[in-house]
Design a protein around this nucleic acid. Structure first.
Lengths: 140, 140
DNA sequence: CTTTGTGCAAACGATTTGCAGGATG
DNA sequence: CATCCTGCAAATCGTTTGCACAAAG
């Protein structure tokens, strides 16, 4: 636990970010969950027991973390921005019933051929979004 | 042109939508462009010469068109909802420089194997989003 | 004539900003 | 001790809503 905390501090510093209790808490919270929360959900989670951070600070922490590449945005619903501390390439599955978002490991969707894209386009990265129904929402 | 207009009227009716000048204009506008505009851009385009529609009506027209499946949303940027009258399955390319979004024909990204998804998930549809740089933005 | 759409303005939710005080390196 | 961060409240952006009037089928 302490070891984990030290590691987070080091990662933040290595990326040129000052380590403040709030920023630490936001990043640690995001690392500890895989449900792609929105800023608001992180805020509530942090302040559940005792006030730890303000709304504006959560937003700015997320921006800072995003800028250095420690978190990324996940955009799968209209007007909703979710965050993910898993920055390794992976795909997403979104349940059309409950809205839950689940990671799909990179290796599980292989065989994509990007070679035939129109010339003139330079590919940086790509990802697949799968829409469907999860276990609990089979009765659509 | 007139032929095209008649066709649009028929499509709207076939989908159970009343044909109003505003709704017609929104759909025709979207059909005539491939740049995935936001609601606001459609509004401005329509009212460029003379007032044709109000903001609220553009939004509600888009909702109605979306509900019957004549247009779809494209979500590739934070907090921004774009619209597309091309509802055939296709993928998207987004330039990280200028933000331009370009369609990628479905056939151009083949070979995706969805078979190995975790059991319990039912696949509805999927799409690939490619991030990169377009012709004009090669100097990143 | 019944139902649905339009336009206006106000309301809304999510995110951003300005600024003064406080903490970090 | 210079720089950057925090917290508050106000501002902003895109979108939605309530309601009275108008138009479509």
């Amino acid at each position: 636990m302490q070891e984990q905390a030290d590691k987070i501090v080091k990662v933040l510093q290595a990326n040129g970010l000052r380590v403040t209790p709030q920023r630490f808490a936001v990043y640690a919270n995001l690392l500890g969950r895989s449900d792609h929360p929105r800023a608001e959900q992180i805020l509530q989670d942090l302040n559940q027991a005792a006030p730890q951070s303000s709304q504006a600070t959560v937003y700015s922490s997320l921006q800072a973390l995003k800028k250095v590449g420690l978190v990324r945005e996940v955009l799968l619903e209209e007007g909703v921005c979710r965050y993910d501390a898993n920055v390794d390439p992976h795909h997403h599955f979104r349940c059309q019933g409950c809205g839950e978002i689940e990671d799909i490991p990179w290796e599980q969707l292989q065989g994509i051929q990007l070679g035939s894209l129109r010339s003139g386009l330079t590919v940086g990265n790509y990802e697949v979004t799968v829409h469907g129904w999860c276990d609990r929402c089979q009765t659509h």
